[in-house]
Design a binder for these strands. Structure first.
Lengths: 211, 211
DNA sequence: GTTGACGTACGTACAGCGTACGTGACACGC
DNA sequence: GCGTGTCACGTACGCTGTACGTACGTCAAC
């Protein structure tokens, strides 16, 4: 028996195996051994199916929030939970990121993050700003990591940087070794630590002004 | 006479006017009043055309780098130059971000940024890490701003947050006013300042250890 | 037991897509 | 005049999303 969940699962499988471009209604129907139009009994259209994919992926984030832990540690955990899911569904990440979905699946992480930031001592305005900075950083990092790489950082460093003309790009040439190496986890944690520590300083300032 | 530049310009025009989904070879050919296949005399395929679009948009970033200015100010300027171009070609931003292009157009910003970070006193490793953090933050911010909104932040805040069940999402409900308001420029500058100041601290530490 | 309604799977059909291929018009060096 | 190239173009193929009509199951009411 066909079902929405089975269709979404098949879509995720196809995306992870063959990339987001390979997704077509016919492809997914074939994957499930059913006719194309049968899918439309459970999913209104392709766009909605991709939304469902994004939502499903997002809902699988495992937030093992420990209220007893220091809030900085909780921020780290939450950020890494995002990274982990992107690692688990690398090729779905771009799908998740490129669809602006409005659902409870998307709101749960926000809820958790705001709670943590409130515990850190930020008021509403600051908490939201901090949250947005974090989200921006995480999303940008994941895009680089997933290889969609919006940036100029070395996607295929060996090729990109090695061929650079030192006269035109002296810095890029000089820093080529560092540009080529890219331990995604290390890079992510570097920026994460940067942000968390900055946040800690701000939290103390806020507490100081207040009390 | 048809030319690669005219084709790319037409593609950008179509994207900005009707969105990236509206781009098709036929659509662009019609825009230029030529046959579809004529395009292929100047562009190998659609993918290459979109790459050219990304490259063209990227190359229009205006880096008015002032070597006399303090490096923190130069970092700010460069980051804002990115934001400005995304503002100028909002609907092309997703195209730029989603194609990993390897070209000099993409390397120039990296060159400038590395030079600035070197002036700040960072060695190669640190400079590259800092650069990556900045790129991640900028890319993530622009995605939110452009409305492709990878995040859960309020794309359509009035709708999204207003309907939230306070019992399920107490924090989101409580912070609704702050979540709803989103002055993109202000948010961007907040995070930018956060990063620049953190960077300044690091730079001092690095200088201290060194000298 | 018959009838009708309903949900589900399916096939057909259509407009649109990217692009491989062939054709014809024109400009050039010989 | 005659290859040889470049460029615009038309046709055609296999793909896409999906509107529509159809056929077969199950279940309720009579």
């Amino acid at each position: 028996m066909l079902s929405r969940d089975r269709i979404v699962a098949a879509a995720i499988a196809v995306i992870e195996r063959e990339g987001a471009d390979a997704v077509s209604m016919r492809r997914i129907a074939a994957e499930l051994g059913v006719g194309v139009m049968s899918l439309y009994n459970h999913v209104p259209n392709k766009s909605a199916l991709l939304d469902a994919v994004a939502e499903t992926v997002l809902s699988q984030i495992e937030f093992t929030d420990d209220p007893a832990a220091h809030w900085t540690q909780r921020v780290r955990m939450q950020a890494r939970a995002f990274r982990q899911i992107a690692h688990h569904f690398p090729r779905c990440t771009m799908v998740v990121v490129s669809r602006q979905l409005r659902s409870t699946a998307g709101l749960l992480p926000v809820e958790r993050a705001l709670a943590t930031l409130r515990d850190a001592g930020f008021d509403g305005r600051e908490a939201v700003q901090m949250l947005r900075v974090f989200i921006a950083y995480i999303v940008g990092s994941l895009l680089r990591e997933v290889g969609v790489t919006p940036t100029f950082a070395p996607v295929r460093p060996d090729i990109a940087v090695a061929e650079v003309d030192p006269a035109l790009f002296p810095m890029v040439s000089a820093f080529a070794p560092d540009l080529m190496a890219c331990d995604h986890e290390e890079e992510f944690d570097f920026g994460l630590e940067l942000l968390v520590q900055t946040m800690a300083v701000r939290a103390e300032q806020a507490a100081g002004h207040e009390g």
